[in-house]
Amino acid sequence: MSFTPDIRLFSCHYTSQQSCAHEGRELQELGFPENVRMTRVACTGKLEVLTLLKAFEDGADGVYVVGCPKDGCHNVKGSQRAAKRVQAVRDALEELGVEPDRVRMYHLPRGLHPEFVDAAREMDEGIRSMGPGPFGG
């Protein structure tokens, strides 16, 4: 059975700035999966645990956050805070008996680097191998 996962990406404004230039055309050309829906946030440190959980409630099969490098965040500790909140959601999913890898944190440099596309592909492949989320989309 073919399965196209619903994946939500919350990305740092700065990390994704160049990726989103030219209406994201370059990103498409580089093979960024179409089933990854991106929401840009001013700083990933502003993301709440609840925001990530709501994405699952809204039907996401997988959720990930892309923030600045751990030691190079534009807002000093924003991406470190985001990583802790992602970890809190991973812990909660595990408590519910759900694969924690359905939510992940990536720290990536600014600019349109191959890693930005690689992270999306890795999430896509990972979620496809896990199958549909258990929350009934």
């Binding site: 709440e48 645990v49 609840l50 699952f56 409630e57 519910l96 759900v98 258990p134 929350f135 009934g136």
Partner: peptide, 19 residues
């Protein structure tokens, strides 16, 4: 209120998972 909202979301997710 923040923690209660998180818990409410987790309960909804947990119940959905359990059908």
């Amino acid at each position: 209120e923040r923690e209660a909202a998180i818990l409410a979301s987790l309960v909804r997710l947990g119940m959905k998972k359990n059908g």
